[in-house]
Amino acid sequence: MDRLNELLETAGPLLRRVDATIAGAGASPSDEVWTQLRRVRLLPGDAVRAVVALRPADLADAAPELRADARAYAVLAGSLPAPGEWSGIAADAYDRVRVRTATHLSGGHDSLDERLQASADLADDLVTWMRQTREAVAAVLADALGSLEAVVLAGNKVDITEPREMAAAATMAEKVLRTVADAYDRAADLLHTTAALAEPTTRVQ
């Protein structure tokens, strides 16, 4: 259990109070929380739980395995035998296919080993992103627990329709949602820059 999981156990009741206030009473029409709600499309509690569901450890082994496969393709490409003393039309045709196959496997534009290396880099970047996102959300939860807004929303006699409680919930929700939204924007940018990996490779003719 990391810091985020530990903080969620403590912050869970507070997040539920914030969610209930936002869902039940709303916020001032001009409040910044509406901008963040449109970005995330989740209440703060659900947004935090979405981040808690990120499992960087599950992806940590992917990059080394992908790089090992890339090296295997490079070795295979280098092992394809040249015609040697074999000559003639058939030998020339074979050598053309051999060169195309080797280039497809390794070293060429959009070769399999290049794509595997790029996929490994993406896996590393996603692991880093997940860890940083979990840390950022943990930090905002820690701040929330020690805030004046938490004091306002604590206790059993909170009236979520009171302006003071509504303002406190909106302030806390805005901070949590903005942290999550900014993190997911970074993930979207990362995936956009690597979108070519989803495209099929050119077949060897």
Rank of each mutant, 00 (worst) to 15 (best):
A173C: 02
S28C: 10
I22G: 00
L4H: 01
M172H: 07
A91M: 04
A181R: 03
V33R: 01
H109G: 13
D69L: 15
V18C: 03
G107C: 01
S30K: 12
A70M: 01
I160L: 12
T128L: 10
S28N: 15
L141Y: 00
H104V: 09
A170S: 08
A142H: 04
A47M: 03
T193L: 10
A167E: 09
R55Q: 15
A198R: 11
R96M: 07
V180F: 03
A20V: 05
D124S: 09
A168R: 00
T35M: 10
D182N: 14
E85F: 09
I22V: 08
L76R: 01
I89F: 10
A144Y: 01
T133D: 02
M166E: 04
G146P: 01
G26F: 05
A11H: 05
A144I: 03
Q132F: 09
A23K: 13
L37C: 02
E6Y: 08
E162D: 15
Q36Y: 10
P29C: 12
E114S: 14
V127L: 05
A120N: 01
D31I: 03
P83K: 01
A27Q: 00
M172Y: 09
E114L: 14
L80W: 06
L54V: 10
T161C: 07
A196P: 08
A169F: 02
E149F: 02
G84P: 04
P200V: 05
V176S: 00
A139R: 09
T201W: 10
D46M: 08
P56K: 01
L76F: 06
D143V: 14
P64F: 06
R38K: 15
P64T: 06
E162K: 11
A50D: 15
D69N: 10
R39E: 10
A181E: 04
R71W: 10
P81F: 13
I22K: 00
L14C: 08
I22A: 00
R100P: 05
A72G: 12
W86Y: 12
L177R: 01
I89R: 12
A173L: 00
V127D: 03
L191K: 07
D69P: 07
D69I: 13
G146I: 04
V52W: 08
A93K: 11
A123G: 04
R131D: 14
E149L: 02
L197T: 12
R38E: 15
A154P: 02
R96N: 09
D121Y: 08
L14F: 10
D19A: 10
L42H: 12
A167Q: 09
W129R: 04
E162S: 13
A63C: 12
L145E: 04
P81G: 13
T202K: 13
L54C: 08
A91E: 01
E85N: 11
Q205N: 14
R98M: 01
I160N: 05
V204Q: 08
V51H: 00
S106A: 15
L153M: 12
P44A: 05
L66H: 02
T133I: 04
A183N: 03
Q205R: 13
A188Y: 09
A93P: 06
A23R: 14
Q36I: 08
G12P: 06
A120K: 00
S30R: 13
E114D: 11
P29R: 11
R203P: 09
P81Q: 13
E162F: 11
R55L: 13
A68T: 13
